[in-house]
Each structure stands twice: as structure tokens, then as C-alpha cells.
Amino acid sequence: MTAVASAERLAGAGDRRVRPGAALAWTFLALVAVAALWPSLLAGHEPNAVDPAHALAGPGAGHPFGTDQLGRDVLSRIVYGTRASVTIGLGATAFAVVAGSVLSTLAALGGRAADELVMRTTDVFLAFPGLLLAMLVVAVLGGSTLNATLAIGMSSAPGFARLIRGQMLVIRESDYVQAARALGRRPLDVHLRHTLPNALPPVLVLATVQVGAAIIGGSSLSFLGLGPKPPTAEWGAMLAEGRSFLAADWAVAVFPGLALTATVVACNVAGRGLQRRFEGRRHVVR
């Protein structure tokens, strides 16, 4: 029996070799990271350098992705726009995970009343479309990358709170939490030492997918004019501006859209890869 089990385990280990799709996704994400940290390495032009003589030039030798209505290099603007998207994607997700952990901790430790309060509140928040909630927040706080991050983070925090609470409910019944209780550990101690750290890993996997969703959310806000102020390069804002010139030059809107799509797909593919790996490990541990 054990021999069969170990053989299956080894077969599972064989699954861990990197799939070509995942390799591609990770390579692209590395490129995105470089663009976000050191945009000048990848961009050939200043993102805001106006050159009306070459407006809407279309893809060509000097401007691989063409130029926009003001003659700004689209490729450079996409590269410089990466930082805003990545900030929103990572920042909002981090905010959501932290807020979700705090909320679910309150629910777990505060007894029945606190649990009810937190969960019913999340129900209310979950009843609104996430983007609508984010728009409300930005409308109150004003448009900027930071505020967009907060807005998207707040709109996705309730989902994480629910998920983490669900994990915690399972872990709280586990033998090792019982053993820690029997050793006389305080509830907060047990929670921080065992329950929370073991509830988080599956949530972190979901978070990688959430990064992609948050990037779309951030771009949607910009598209609606609720993101960073112009002339800051941002993918959603570029899409919105390019939309008016689609008839004259398709490249202005298509390339920012492609950048957005590719980044989100890469996030999801990489996230799925992590998930598979994580579940494999879980299997071995159990």
C-alpha cells in the first residue's frame, strides 16, 4: 500500500516540472517587474514628450507601437504605465489580504456576536458590485494611484475575510489546535501561532489571481477617469483616450489593451501554477 502511495506521490512530484505556459507567464511577469521598477531601461522615449508632427503615426521604425494623438511614443507610455497598474494590483491585493486577516481574526476570537457582525457586514459589501464600491470610495477620496489602490483593496477585502474565516473554522477543529489548547496556550497565542499561519497559504494562492483582477479594476477606474491624473501614463486611461482615435489609428488603443490582457493572463497562469504546486505539497503533507 505504501509502495503504491509513494509511487503516486512521486508521480505527483513529476508534475512539478515547469510547464511551457507557466515559464512564458513567469518570463512576462519578470519583464513587467523590470518595467515597473526601471522603466527607462525598456522605454526608448520620455513618456510625456510631445511631438505633434508625428501624431498618430502608427507602428513603425522609431515607434514600434506607434504614437498617440499628441505624438507621444505608445510603447514608452505603456512601459511607464506599468508601475501604476502593478502598484494597484499588488497594493490592493495586499490590502485586501491584510484587512481580510484582521477581520476574520476578529470574527474568530471575538465570539459569536463578533462573528455575526463581521460576516453580516461582509455580506452587505459583497452584495455590491466590486467596481461600484471602488468608484464610491474614489469619488469620496479623489482620484490618484494610491486612492485607486485603497478603493480596489477595500472592495475585495470582504471576499478574503470570508475565505480566511472558512479556513480558520477548519483549522480550529484540527488536532494540533486542540493540542495547543490542552497545553494551556491563550486563544490569541494559538490563533497567531497556528490558526492564522495555516489558514493563509491557500488564500495567498487565490491572491495571485486577485492581482490580475485588481489590475483590471484599477484600469477600469482610470478608464472612467477616476485614476491617476493626466498626463500620467496609465493603461486604462490610454485605452480611454485611444478609443476616440480608433478610426484614425488602431494601435493607440490596441497596444495598451494587449499589455493589460497579457499581464492579467500571466498573473492567472502563474497563480494556477502556484496553486497546483501548493496542492501537491498539501497532498504529501496530509
Binding site: 484540527s174 488536532d175 494540533y176 486542540q178 493540542a179 489548547r181 490542552a182 497545553l183 494551556g184 491563550r186 501561532r193 497556528h194 499561519p197 495555516n198 503533507v285 496530509r286
Partner: peptide, 20 residues
Amino acid sequence: RPLRHRIQFVQQDPLASFDP
């Protein structure tokens, strides 16, 4: 809680009784 150390616990499935 301060007395809990006097009664200890050994469970059936040791693997499940440890934080992984």
C-alpha cells in the same frame, strides 16, 4: 488555563496533531 499542563493529550493521528 494555568492548570492545563497537568492534563496532557496524545492523539490517534500524530501527524494531524502537529502544526505542519
